[in-house]
Design a protein around this nucleic acid. Structure first.
Length: 219
DNA sequence: AACCAGGAGAGAG
DNA sequence: CTCTCTCATGGT
């Protein structure tokens, strides 16, 4: 068992199955509407506390079911007003409508799940408001595709545990490249069985662990 | 009362 | 390609 799998076992033992802490995101199986809500949440949570996102989603549900159809039905100003608690509400409202338009035009979430992973990833990365982390969160948690999500918690963990110390010199990488998004993503994916359930749980556990650890050892 | 949380786009150099 | 600025709310 390599260090990535032992990390999973260690965190699983410590925190348990990350279902309740992560609400919908780690729930399996998911309904179509739960998948849509995860996509909406993935945009809303950008650089924002999850507590604020919950308020925004509650506001949306108060109007109607939190779905992609609702996002398109609402006019921009109304949507802005509803998601205001999540911050950056004007830009996020536009992001949401753009992403929603693309998904519905492509045939909806169920259709997307049958697409080729690599192609779909490069397609949604072109959408405004969808960077690497948001794209992979959507692919992994909404569409059950095996992509590992890299975030600040993952970077810190890799840094703190010194996992890249001897590999970086071996591969002759510049210090800035060692924590590059794509590099870290491939590192995790190459060292773990390609299963979306494992990716979902491990990433969630890393976040839970990271939050609990706080920012005491970081620099 | 700063500081920051499941980031990303746009512009400059 | 790598900085730096901007977008904004709510909790410590």
């Amino acid at each position: 068992m390599n260090q990535y799998l032992s990390l999973y076992c260690e965190l699983l033992k410590k925190h348990g199955q990350p279902k309740d802490q992560w609400g919908l995101w780690c729930r399996r199986p998911k309904t179509k509407w739960q998948r849509e809500e995860v996509i909406i949440g993935a945009i809303l949570t950008q650089n924002t506390n999850w507590q604020n996102v919950k308020k925004a989603i509650t506001n949306l549900k108060q109007v109607k079911k939190c779905s992609l159809k609702l996002i398109l039905e609402l006019d921009l100003q109304k949507l802005e007003e509803l998601i205001r608690p999540s911050g950056f509400y004007k830009t996020k409202a536009r992001y949401l409508q753009g992403v929603t338009e693309y998904i519905l035009k492509s045939g909806g979430v169920t259709k997307l799940m049958k697409c080729d992973l690599v192609e779909l990833r490069s397609e949604i990365l072109k959408l405004k408001g969808v960077g690497p982390e948001t794209a992979d969160s959507i692919l992994l948690y909404a569409l059950d595709m095996p992509v590992f999500v890299i975030d600040e918690y993952t970077r810190r963990l890799v840094k703190v545990r010194g996992w890249l110390e001897h590999q970086s010199s071996k591969l002759n990488l510049e210090p800035t490249d060692r924590f590059d998004y794509e590099y870290l993503r491939k590192l995790f994916e190459e060292n773990l069985p390609k299963k979306f359930e494992l990716y979902q749980d491990l990433h969630a556990l890393i976040v839970v662990e990271g939050k609990q650890a706080g920012r005491k050892v970081i620099k």
